[in-house]
Structures are given as C-alpha cells and as structure tokens.
Nucleic acid binder design. Sequence first.
DNA 1: GTAGGTGCAAAGAGTTTGCATACGC
DNA 2: GCGTATGCAAACTCTTTGCACCTAC
Lengths: 139, 139
Amino acid sequence: MNKYQVLLQQTGLKQTRQRTIMLDVLYNSKGPLSAEDLFGLIKKRGVSMSLSTVYRILESFTDKGLVTALTLETSKQVLYEVAHAHHGHHLICISCSKVIHVEGCPLENYEAKLAQKYRFKIDDHTLNFYGYCEQCSTG
Amino acid sequence: MNKYQVLLQQTGLKQTRQRTIMLDVLYNSKGPLSAEDLFGLIKKRGVSMSLSTVYRILESFTDKGLVTALTLETSKQVLYEVAHAHHGHHLICISCSKVIHVEGCPLENYEAKLAQKYRFKIDDHTLNFYGYCEQCSTG
DNA sequence: GTAGGTGCAAAGAGTTTGCATACGC
DNA sequence: GCGTATGCAAACTCTTTGCACCTAC
C-alpha cells in the first residue's frame, strides 16, 4: 500500500485510479497547479479523465485538507497545491508565471498587533510577492 | 472644475458622464468594489450605464494608475479600489465579506532578504488577512 | 448490493469583444 | 468632423451541475 492509498484511506475517500493519479501529480509538482494544468499533466501520462472529475476531486481534497487553493493576481484560475504542514508564501514571476514556495513567515507579531488594533479575529493570511525570477531578470 | 474632472484631464481620458460617476463611486467607497458592485451602486443613483462600460472604464483607470485591482480568496470576482499613494493591505471578514484597508507594511526587510536568498527581483506584493470582524466575532 | 465516483454535456458566473451609434473635444 | 466612448448582444473562459452509468468496498 503506497503513500497515496494511505492518504485516501485516512481521509475516508474511496481509492480510485483518478484520485491516486491526482495525488501523484500534485505531490510531484514544484508549484501550484490549476485544474487545467492537472488535466493536461494527467493526459500526458496517457491517462484519460474528465475535467469535471478533476474539479470534483480538487474540491474533495480541499475539504479533507489534503490540498489548499490559492488565487494569484496574475491569472483568473484557481491554483491548488499540497497542503504544507508549515505555513508558507509565494514568489510569483510576472514574466514566466513560475511560482516558488517560500517556507516561514515573518508576520506573527504584526498579525497580533493588527488583530488588537482593528478588533479583528485573524484566522489566516495570504502573502504573495510579484516580480522577476533569476532567469527572467538576467535574460 | 471638480476633482474628478481634473483627474480625467491629467490622465488624458475624455470626460464623460460614465467616467465621472465611476470615480465618484470609487472615491466614496469604504472598501474595494467589483464591477457588479459598481454597476449596482450607479444604478441606485438613478444613472443607467452598461456593465461592459463599467468593465472598460475599470480597465482604463487601472492602466492609468487611478485604481488598482485585487483578487481575494473569498470570491471569484476582481475587486477595484482607488490607488493609494501609500502601500497597504487588507483585513477580509470571512463572514460578512467586509474589507478593511490597513495602511503601512511590515515587510520591507523581509522582502530584501527573500530577494537575495532566491535571487528574485521583487516588484510588489499582496498581503491579505482573513478572519472575523468585530461585529461578526462578537455577534 | 449499495453508496459514492465518474463522464458527458449542458448550464452558470464573470468578463471580454464586435459592431453600430453617440458624444467629447 | 474625427476619433474615441458607449450600449447591446454575442462570445469566451473557468467552473459547476444533472443525470446516467460504473466501481470500490
């Protein structure tokens, strides 16, 4: 029984060919993927699968906490990535659309200050940096 | 000649009834607005205007730097707000969707560190906090 | 065997575009 | 009067949904 089968069983999701390959693609991706990206990558592996199934599986994975959804200013698509145990952020290249995941967060103190000042109960935050990656800025 | 007429003239945009009312609604809003929001607020004032014109004007205002666009995790719509001279961030209420604009930014040093570590030329960033506003958390 | 999963096609939301008319300068 | 702005309707993109069939457990 492999890693993905265990994940599915733990979350109470039935083990299907489609869910296993989705997990595999998501876990082997360097950056967040859109539904369309996943659909294409799965097709590239010679597996056929409906786009609506991709959306439905992404929804169930998000519900179960296996993946997290994010939206960037540079595209209208929703992106999905494996939920990281550690909170992190993103560097997004405006030129080639590459997304780099950055571990760690400098905002704990600031968040506490804001919460007090605005009497706002903060649950979470998103922090994305937009600019040019090494290749695009030197090229 | 009022404030909005001056803004339009400075940016080289023709002065039209539609552009003036859009500026007025945007400047008098407490939080960012979607195209649909603007359309509704304008209609409320008894002015009729096409939704596609709203989109087109938002695009030209964005190009001219009069407004900035943002996307939040809580909705699929693009939101627009008057471009602030000072960099700021947002507190978004998950319950009532209220958006509070926060002035100031704690990230300058962190941004410089990241840029060096990842050899990434950072131009800008977005920082949004999600949680519950005073009314929604006490209610 | 049954509950839940999948595929297909159609619907839906948000946004964009083509084209004819109208209006600012 | 010219060139740009606007309105309308149609198109487009991304995502969701209804329904019949299929598959894991």
